[in-house]
């Protein structure tokens, strides 16, 4: 995403990073998380889970900003994100 001007506090903000956890066998492959991830972190994998659905996989895990949208949107309680411990949300 391009900013048309740089925020004044851009040098002081540290973007958080999340660690994505997928409970693969709980997934029913709806694709909500894949569609709405703002950072396009997720894709449906080509593998099947125990129920025969394609669960998501984090193809761009480093881009996760711990917004937890997938966690709230998932109808199956099958994906969640934890904050990477070395990171801090805001400095200063």
């Amino acid at each position: 995403m391009q900013y048309w001007r740089k925020p004044l506090d851009a040098d002081r903000i540290q973007i958080p990073h999340g660690e994505i956890h997928i409970v693969r066998d709980r997934c029913k492959g709806c694709g909500f998380c894949v569609e709405y991830c703002p950072k396009d972190v997720l894709e449906l994998s080509s593998q099947f889970n125990i129920k025969g659905y394609h669960p998501p996989e984090a193809v761009n895990a480093d881009a996760c900003v711990h917004c937890q949208l997938c966690e709230l949107l998932c109808p199956e309680f099958a994906i969640f994100v934890t904050l990477k411990e070395e990171e801090q949300t805001v400095e200063g």
Binding site: K28, C30, G31, F32, E71, L72, L73, C74, P75, E76, F77
Partner: peptide
């Protein structure tokens, strides 16, 4: 793709 689970979440 039912939305009830999301509402519960």
């Amino acid at each position: 793709t039912c939305g009830i689970g999301t509402a519960v979440s």
